[in-house]
Design a protein around this nucleic acid. Structure first.
Length: 139
DNA sequence: GCCAACGTTGGC
DNA sequence: GCCAACGTTGGC
Protein backbone atom coordinates (compact mmCIF):
# COMPACT_ATOMS: atom_id res chain seq x y z
CA UNK A 1 0.00 0.00 0.00
CA UNK A 2 1.23 3.49 -0.82
CA UNK A 3 0.75 6.65 1.18
CA UNK A 4 -0.09 10.19 0.13
CA UNK A 5 -0.86 13.64 1.43
CA UNK A 6 -3.78 15.82 0.35
CA UNK A 7 -3.55 19.51 1.04
CA UNK A 8 -6.58 21.78 1.30
CA UNK A 9 -7.47 25.23 2.48
CA UNK A 10 -10.07 24.70 5.22
CA UNK A 11 -12.08 27.66 3.94
CA UNK A 12 -12.51 25.85 0.61
CA UNK A 13 -12.73 22.21 1.67
CA UNK A 14 -12.10 21.22 5.27
CA UNK A 15 -11.70 17.96 7.13
CA UNK A 16 -15.25 18.48 8.49
CA UNK A 17 -16.54 18.77 4.93
CA UNK A 18 -14.75 15.55 4.07
CA UNK A 19 -16.14 13.74 7.13
CA UNK A 20 -19.64 14.92 6.21
CA UNK A 21 -19.37 12.96 2.95
CA UNK A 22 -19.09 9.74 4.94
CA UNK A 23 -18.04 6.42 3.44
CA UNK A 24 -19.20 7.44 -0.02
CA UNK A 25 -16.30 9.88 -0.18
CA UNK A 26 -15.88 12.70 -2.61
CA UNK A 27 -13.87 13.68 -5.67
CA UNK A 28 -10.60 15.42 -4.88
CA UNK A 29 -11.33 17.76 -7.76
CA UNK A 30 -10.10 21.15 -8.77
CA UNK A 31 -6.42 20.23 -9.04
CA UNK A 32 -4.92 22.06 -12.02
CA UNK A 33 -1.30 21.17 -11.61
CA UNK A 34 0.34 18.46 -13.69
CA UNK A 35 2.61 17.18 -10.97
CA UNK A 36 -0.24 16.79 -8.50
CA UNK A 37 -2.39 15.14 -11.18
CA UNK A 38 0.36 12.68 -11.98
CA UNK A 39 0.66 11.77 -8.33
CA UNK A 40 -3.08 11.04 -8.20
CA UNK A 41 -2.79 8.82 -11.28
CA UNK A 42 -0.50 6.53 -9.31
CA UNK A 43 -3.04 5.95 -6.54
CA UNK A 44 -4.87 2.67 -5.99
CA UNK A 45 -8.10 1.95 -4.15
CA UNK A 46 -7.27 1.26 -0.52
CA UNK A 47 -4.20 3.52 -0.41
CA UNK A 48 -4.12 5.78 2.63
CA UNK A 49 -3.45 9.47 2.84
CA UNK A 50 -3.02 12.35 5.24
CA UNK A 51 -5.47 15.24 5.11
CA UNK A 52 -3.57 18.50 5.63
CA UNK A 53 -4.99 21.92 6.37
CA UNK A 54 -2.96 24.75 4.83
CA UNK A 55 -3.27 28.45 5.70
CA UNK A 56 -4.29 29.06 9.32
CA UNK A 57 -3.94 25.64 10.85
CA UNK A 58 -1.02 24.15 8.88
CA UNK A 59 -1.39 20.64 10.29
CA UNK A 60 -2.11 17.06 9.35
CA UNK A 61 -5.58 16.60 10.81
CA UNK A 62 -6.84 13.23 9.65
CA UNK A 63 -6.48 10.02 7.67
CA UNK A 64 -8.25 9.30 4.41
CA UNK A 65 -8.55 6.34 2.09
CA UNK A 66 -8.61 6.32 -1.71
CA UNK A 67 -12.01 4.91 -2.71
CA UNK A 68 -11.90 5.47 -6.49
CA UNK A 69 -8.92 5.48 -8.79
CA UNK A 70 -8.01 8.33 -11.08
CA UNK A 71 -10.81 9.39 -13.41
CA UNK A 72 -11.70 12.61 -15.27
CA UNK A 73 -12.32 15.56 -12.97
CA UNK A 74 -16.02 16.39 -13.28
CA UNK A 75 -15.28 20.08 -12.69
CA UNK A 76 -12.75 20.35 -15.55
CA UNK A 77 -13.75 21.91 -18.85
CA UNK A 78 -11.32 19.78 -20.85
CA UNK A 79 -10.11 16.20 -20.48
CA UNK A 80 -6.61 16.97 -19.23
CA UNK A 81 -7.47 16.83 -15.55
CA UNK A 82 -8.08 13.73 -13.49
CA UNK A 83 -8.70 13.11 -9.84
CA UNK A 84 -9.35 10.33 -7.34
CA UNK A 85 -12.11 9.98 -4.77
CA UNK A 86 -11.23 9.85 -1.08
CA UNK A 87 -13.15 9.23 2.11
CA UNK A 88 -12.36 10.20 5.68
CA UNK A 89 -11.16 7.37 7.93
CA UNK A 90 -10.42 9.01 11.28
CA UNK A 91 -9.07 12.21 12.73
CA UNK A 92 -5.63 12.44 14.30
CA UNK A 93 -6.13 12.74 18.06
CA UNK A 94 -3.29 15.27 18.08
CA UNK A 95 -2.95 17.13 14.76
CA UNK A 96 0.69 17.21 13.63
CA UNK A 97 1.66 20.75 12.74
CA UNK A 98 4.01 21.93 10.04
CA UNK A 99 6.23 23.35 12.78
CA UNK A 100 6.51 19.91 14.37
CA UNK A 101 7.34 18.35 11.02
CA UNK A 102 10.06 20.93 10.44
CA UNK A 103 11.43 20.29 13.93
CA UNK A 104 11.74 16.55 13.27
CA UNK A 105 14.95 15.65 11.41
CA UNK A 106 13.45 12.42 10.03
CA UNK A 107 10.74 14.46 8.31
CA UNK A 108 12.94 17.21 6.91
CA UNK A 109 12.90 15.71 3.41
CA UNK A 110 9.12 15.50 3.14
CA UNK A 111 7.59 17.08 0.07
CA UNK A 112 5.49 19.09 2.53
CA UNK A 113 8.69 20.89 3.56
CA UNK A 114 10.68 20.75 0.34
CA UNK A 115 7.89 21.57 -2.07
CA UNK A 116 5.37 23.49 -0.08
CA UNK A 117 3.19 24.44 -3.03
CA UNK A 118 2.49 20.91 -4.25
CA UNK A 119 -1.06 20.06 -3.21
CA UNK A 120 -0.95 16.28 -3.63
CA UNK A 121 2.20 14.50 -2.55
CA UNK A 122 3.67 11.05 -1.96
CA UNK A 123 4.58 10.10 1.63
CA UNK A 124 7.30 7.56 2.48
CA UNK A 125 6.35 4.58 4.70
CA UNK A 126 8.63 5.71 7.51
CA UNK A 127 7.23 9.24 7.35
CA UNK A 128 3.72 7.83 7.46
CA UNK A 129 4.45 5.72 10.54
CA UNK A 130 6.15 8.53 12.39
CA UNK A 131 3.42 11.11 11.77
CA UNK A 132 0.74 8.62 12.81
CA UNK A 133 2.66 8.05 16.03
CA UNK A 134 3.17 11.78 16.64
CA UNK A 135 -0.54 12.28 15.97
CA UNK A 136 -1.52 9.83 18.67
CA UNK A 137 -2.41 6.79 16.57
CA UNK A 138 -0.81 3.46 17.39
CA UNK A 139 -0.80 2.48 13.72
C1' DG B 1 0.23 42.09 3.88
C1' DC B 2 4.50 40.60 2.14
C1' DC B 3 7.50 37.69 -0.16
C1' DA B 4 9.72 33.37 -1.93
C1' DA B 5 8.95 29.59 -4.84
C1' DC B 6 7.32 28.05 -8.79
C1' DG B 7 4.10 27.28 -12.73
C1' DT B 8 2.25 29.34 -17.00
C1' DT B 9 2.01 32.40 -20.85
C1' DG B 10 3.43 34.84 -24.73
C1' DG B 11 6.81 37.45 -27.49
C1' DC B 12 10.84 36.88 -29.95
C1' DG C 1 13.42 27.00 -27.46
C1' DC C 2 14.44 30.76 -24.39
C1' DC C 3 13.22 34.03 -21.14
C1' DA C 4 10.72 37.96 -19.12
C1' DA C 5 6.40 38.97 -17.22
C1' DC C 6 2.87 37.65 -14.62
C1' DG C 7 -0.28 34.86 -11.59
C1' DT C 8 -0.92 31.66 -7.72
C1' DT C 9 0.14 29.25 -3.54
C1' DG C 10 1.36 29.03 1.01
C1' DG C 11 4.27 30.24 4.95
C1' DC C 12 5.55 33.87 7.91
Amino acid sequence: MNHWLFKSEPSTWSWDDQVAKGDAGEEWNGVRNYQARNVMRQMKVGDRGFFYHSQDQKAVVGLVEVCAESHPDSTAADDKWDCVDIRALKPLPDPVTLAQVKDTPELADMALVRQSRLSVQPVRPEEWALICKMGGLAD
